[in-house]
Amino acid sequence: MADPLHIVCPHCHTTNRVRQDDLAKAPDCGSCHKMLFTGHPVTLGEGAFERHISRSQIPVLVDFWAPWCGPCLQMAPAYAQATAQLEPGFRVAKVDTEAWPALGARFNIRSIPTLALFNNGHELARQAGAMGAADIVRWAKFHAL
């Protein structure tokens, strides 16, 4: 039997231990009892971002975006569709670079939307520009290998 994975709750940001076999069984948080996977991107600020990136043992896909960005708004429905396809194997998140400019600066985000894929605290890949749902899923799965 494989060791349990650490999964950070999208609601209270508590780290949970979940057996890999149980990921597809709609696990809930041991602390707040809400579902660990909702089928929607998780909105992250600075502290929550750190927790998800450093403690999650599944890949974390992050959309760096801003509310004034036309391509970001165009991509939002596709990103939500991709989330439903990628969970529970991925945590899918969004970071508003307008609200959290230090995160954008830290990761040298120069154009938005930019997707960045993290695993075990390290950035694996990034892609600037709007993409459709199928392309987001394909890109994330390819780079998570």
Rank of each mutant, 00 (worst) to 15 (best):
G104C: 03
G104L: 01
C72I: 13
W68M: 15
D63F: 03
R55S: 05
E87Y: 13
N108E: 09
S54A: 11
I136N: 05
A84I: 09
E46L: 06
L145W: 02
F37H: 01
T97K: 02
H40V: 12
M35H: 06
P71Y: 02
D21P: 05
D96Q: 02
A80H: 15
H122G: 10
H143C: 05
P27L: 10
Q127N: 02
E98H: 12
V92W: 05
A125T: 02
P10H: 00
E46F: 12
I58A: 02
W68D: 11
G70F: 07
R55Y: 10
T97Y: 01
F49H: 14
N120S: 15
L86F: 10
F118W: 04
N120M: 04
L61M: 14
N108H: 06
R17G: 06
A48C: 05
A133R: 08
C12E: 06
F64C: 00
N119T: 03
F142E: 12
P59M: 11
F142K: 15
F37G: 01
A99W: 03
Q57F: 01
L5C: 07
G89Q: 14
E46H: 13
R19N: 13
W100Y: 15
A84F: 07
C69Q: 09
P27M: 07
L44W: 02
N16I: 00
D22N: 13
G89M: 06
I136D: 02
R17S: 12
M35N: 06
H11P: 03
D63M: 11
H122W: 08
K141D: 10
V18M: 05
P10G: 04
A125I: 01
A26H: 12
G121D: 04
K34N: 14
M131S: 08
W139E: 04
G89S: 03
H143K: 13
H11T: 10
I112K: 03
V8G: 08
L5Q: 08
L86K: 01
E46Y: 02
E87I: 01
R51K: 15
P10D: 13
C12A: 04
G129P: 04
W68N: 03
M75E: 12
